[in-house]
Amino acid sequence: MTYELIAFALFAFVTLASALGVVLLADPWHSALMLGVTLVSVAVYYVMLAAEFVAMMQILVYVGGVLILITFAVMLTQRDDADVDETDEVVQT
């Protein structure tokens, strides 16, 4: 009993910390990486809840599709190096 509870607590900490990282990190690329950690750790709960197929679909669809698309968009909408550092805060917010 306690082992599953300990595993749940650990993964809940990972999920909540990385979700907070998604909304609090300044760089969208770092946020995308944190979103990947969140999505993978959510799949762990699906395995704990006897939904192995949904866990596999979570990893395939979200990490393999949605996260790749978001990564593409982050890369395509990055500004140039000249005005991305600190002169323009709009793209970072």
Binding site: G21, L24, L25, A26, D27, H30, V84, Q92, T93
Partner: peptide, 10 residues
């Protein structure tokens, strides 16, 4: 452009 992760607070 390699910068460490920065929290955005405020």
């Amino acid at each position: 452009m390699t910068n460490g992760p920065q929290l955005r607070l405020g």
